[in-house]
Every structure is written in structure tokens, then in C-alpha cells.
Design a protein around this nucleic acid. Sequence first.
DNA 1: GCGGGCCATGTAACCGGTTACGCTGCCGGC
DNA 2: GCCGGCAGCGTAACCGGTTACATGGCCCGC
Lengths: 327, 327
Amino acid sequence: MGEATIRDVARKAQVSVASVSRALNGLDHVSEQTRAKVAAAARDLGYVPHAGARSLSLARTNAIGVLLPDVHGEFFSEIVRGMDVEANRRGYLLLLANMHAGSAQAKAALQAMRGRVDALVVMAPHLDRAAISRALPQASRAVLINAPANVRSHSNIRIDNHAGVRAVIKHLKAIGRSRMVYVGGPSHNLDAQERAAAFASASSADERILASGDFSVESGNAAVRGLIEAGERFDAVFAANDMMAIGAIQALRAAGLRMPEDVAVAGFDDVPLAEHLELTTVRVRIAELGARALSRLITMLENGAAEPVSELHSPELVIRRSTVPNA
Amino acid sequence: MGEATIRDVARKAQVSVASVSRALNGLDHVSEQTRAKVAAAARDLGYVPHAGARSLSLARTNAIGVLLPDVHGEFFSEIVRGMDVEANRRGYLLLLANMHAGSAQAKAALQAMRGRVDALVVMAPHLDRAAISRALPQASRAVLINAPANVRSHSNIRIDNHAGVRAVIKHLKAIGRSRMVYVGGPSHNLDAQERAAAFASASSADERILASGDFSVESGNAAVRGLIEAGERFDAVFAANDMMAIGAIQALRAAGLRMPEDVAVAGFDDVPLAEHLELTTVRVRIAELGARALSRLITMLENGAAEPVSELHSPELVIRRSTVPNA
DNA sequence: GCGGGCCATGTAACCGGTTACGCTGCCGGC
DNA sequence: GCCGGCAGCGTAACCGGTTACATGGCCCGC
């Protein structure tokens, strides 16, 4: 025995389905008496409108689809949290799908969303421009997050990695550091690529030492330990993310080097732990990025189409004791 | 101009909608010729089936609703990730909703899910038994996570906090510790309550010192610093979560105490950082908890109803150097 | 040669809502 | 007293799929 439908309510209240619909949705042209009868019948039957059917006839779902790659941990969680908050605030639900594998799965996920969502937020660092414009619906129904900068077909909200890196380098130079180690992230990661490129273009060959890791604490530790053991001299370490910076700090401490006096350390992301470790870093408000993407999308939906816009989120430099003693 | 519908495809392929449906769903009783015509027409029109309409007529959505409280960070993300992986594996989508405020919002979220999902995963530590059985659909369509143990109306998947705490205490005693500090979590948190109760029942008054924090690093640091300054003697610290354990370690280090020789430290949760800090802790596989909940739900859906089951997830003690020097 | 059965296909009802449109009855203005 | 307008309500079409049932053609066995 299934749940009650609007026709059951209509029968019980002795009115037509149209009146039930009007009454429950608070529309005009319904007498107070009818309204009351309907409300009573609905309550008695425990009637809950069938959102699926409603969407079908309204051609509107009040849901936003979110397509994410297989990101682990912090980033994934924060971005979803930000979207969730904003969705909740504006009365939308989030339909989540991950695409672990290649574009075949992405396509399947996209298809599964058809008719269940009003629009999409897609985070697809590994899809190229052609794939994106082929698979996605019109521009007004989708927003990309951290897609390659050259995508122009859809709105694209990105982190300004260049600005963040430049800010760190400027800060390190301002405090008199002249020989910086840069610990890069995994080369397949778009943010890692952008940060590395920014570092390369904002520093000169004689003031930098390049190392690389995979965004893990251990890889940061290993990279810096290796340089110390190799006898390299440097007065600053800039890791492409906070986790590697934490590893770097461990390595410095193990080698008996003082921070920041001997070596200043900076990271990128401002994970919650960075504050407790007093790590200078670049604050990327990931949740805000997600909230922003969703907000933009909903606004586009409600105000009708608009030109696709590429929006850069400028991160903020947070100076702490890992670079400035009395910060 | 909207997207193509099944009737458009039928018209273009010069067959009936029934044949299109059968062909695209790979059913029998369709000639190869028709199948090909339909496939061609669908491709030409860029036809994507309308999942919403499909669900309506099938009375099946292939989606699972997830209702979460306003949890921040790690826990939220891990549990969603675990569910997502499992959902993906079994061909389901996840519909996410948060209930920030009270039960009014929870009710609204539940209603919004009607007709869009086949079943629900509800994490509702603050809802009591009555509220749960009133608001939720039949038992076979919902699984709870970390609901109070006395809820019997629905399946309930919980972390076995008691077992985890007992394992830690047993371990600490086995390595000869006889005076333990317990740093409890915030009293409104269900896990904190259970862990505190377990600690109280598994230790005796003369071997424990109670302190409390709020699950943050800083609160763990403050609690232990306070005890040291007050001149308390102890040879072990057991924090109700890893974050506070990290704070405790900072405080011990600042006081010049050796770990584990002078004071052994243990936490709870096994956050990623615990491994790098070599912290003995209780591993709670949160993602696995989410995956398990989803898996159970889908199995119930597909095999028809079953008795509601309360499942306890036994966490695992992970011994590291914060308690055993050569671990 | 004829009837039964099966296969391919089409028609139309149905899922559970919304809503255009038509009808009735009442009111007020002339 | 008549008519236009509007409030209240109901009927039925529609959203875009699936599918029960009907139909017609063909093959086969007798």
C-alpha cells in the first residue's frame, strides 16, 4: 500500500484535485472552507506531495547537480559543504555524483542527472575544452569549478593560484629571504601546475631550488630532508600545499634548524591545522568557492540566462610565525 | 526550445514510443532494424532520457537521500565520501540535504525528498526516538547512522565507542600506566557522551583524572597544560579525539615531558595526521561506516524488506610510538 | 489449407502532480 | 431586470517516460 496521493486527498476532502493543489500551494481562488477541508484531509492521510511528479509537471526540480572528480579529503568536503550551505539557504537540494574513471562515467553521470536537476556544478580539472562543451547543456545551466582558464563556453570559477604564489614570494623577499626552496605538487594536478608555473615566473633561477612532492606530509618531509642531506643552503621553503609544508617543518626541526630564523616556511591552502602550527600560508576559502559557484548558478537560473563569466577567487596571504617571529 | 523527448525520437525513427523505449532499454521483441533506426534517431537528436519522468512511471529513482546534521570538516566529508563510493558502485545517486536548525527543517528536507529517492540515510544524533519514528517512512526505506542505541524502529549503524575506549584503557594498563588523564569532548555530542561513559565504567576513581575540552587542538592543549601547572601527576593522557590529543602532546612537549616515557598519549578517530604524529589511537573508519550504511540500505531495497538491524562498528586500536617506544 | 502461436509493433492508460479552460452562481452597475 | 465580471470550483490535458493489451503478419504442424 503506497503513500497517499493528491487524488486520495481530493476524495477525502470531497473536492477536486485542482482545489487540493491550489489549497496546498497557497494559491488564490480557494475559499477558506475548502482550504480547511483540504488541510484536514491532508493531515489525516499523512499526505506528502510527490516531489518527483511535481518537478515533472513544473519542469523545475529545485535541485542542483554536482559532479565531482574523485577528490579525497579536505578539498572535496569543504567544497561540498560550501555548496550545501548555500543550496540550503536558497531552498535547493544537492544531487551528488562522482566520476571516478574517465569521461564515459562522466557522461553516464550527466545523463542520470537529466530531468532531476535544474542546473549543474561541474568540477572537471581533467576534461578539456572540447569535452566540456560537448557534454554539458547550455551555458546558463552549468558552472564549472577550476576548469582550465581557456574554457569560455561556460561560467568558470577558479582559484587565483598565480596571485597567491606571487603574494608569498613577495612576502619572503620582503623579510629578506634570497634562496627559496619550492616543493611542487603532483604534476597531473591542475592547481599544482598553476602554482609551479607561477613560482617559476615570479622567481629567478639563482634564488630558487626546485623540489617536488605529491601533496602529502611525508613527501614534503622527504623533499626537504633530501636537500639538507645534500648540503644545499637555503633560507626559505615554500610548499605548494600546507601538508607538504608540515612535512618540511618536521624535516627542519629534525635537522636542528630554527624556524623562522634559519629557514622561513610557507604553505598554501590554510588547512585548519595551519593555524595551530603557526604556518604562514595562502588562505583559500574552499567552502566559499563552492558557495559562490552555487550562488552564481541559482542567480542565473532565476534571472534568466546571462553571459558566461570567468571568476577568479583571490586568495589571501596569512602571515604567521613560520615566517615572522612576532606575527 | 527544450530537449528532445522520446516522442521526438519516435517520430524521427518512424516508430512508436513503445518501440523506442524498448529499443533503448535493451528489451526483447525489437527487430534489429528497428533497434538501429532508433539508435540513429536518438544519436542525431542528442536524446537523453528524462530521469525524472522515468522515475515517476517506474516508481523507482535509483537515488538515495542523505540527511545530515550540520557537521563540519572531517567527519561529514568522510561519511559522504564513503557513501558516494558505494552509491557509485551500485549505480545510485546521492541526494544531499542538511538540516541546520531544528526538526522543522528536518521535516521540510524529508518532504522534499519524497518521490525523488528510494530510501534514506539519516544521521540524527539529536533526534529522539519518537521524532524519528514519526517522521521517517517505513523501516525498510531508511537507515540511521549513530542514532541513540534505544532506537529500534529502524536499522541503526553505530560506532562502538565503548569497545574503542575499553581497548585503549586495556592497552594503557598493559604498558603499566596507572594514573590516566581523560580529556572529554563537548557534552552535547553523542560520541563524546558515550566515550566518557565508557571511560568512567572501565576505570576506577583512583587511577583517573578527568578534564574536558571541546574536541579542538587548543582545548586539549589547555586542559593538559592546566593539569601540569596544577602540579598533577600522571603517566598517561587519553583524549576523546585525536585533535585534543595533538594539543595534549604540544602541552607535554612545552613542559619538557618525554613521550611516551614520562607520559603516554592516546587519541580517538585516527585522523590522517595521527599517523604522522605517531599517535596511538582508535581507528574509526568513517568512510566505511557510510559505505556500510548505504550498502545495507540498497540490499534491503533490492531484496525486499528485512527486520531492522542495529549494527555496531567495532573500531580498531592502532598502537604507535606515543605509547610504545619501538612500535 | 487452415488454425494456433509467436513475434514485432502500435495505441493508450498510467505514474502524481499542475493548470488552462469552462462552468456556475453571485454581485454590482446601468 | 439584464448583463458583465469575477470568485470558486471541476474536468481533463499535459509533463515524459513505461507497459498492458490489442493487432496484424508470418511460420508451422496437421
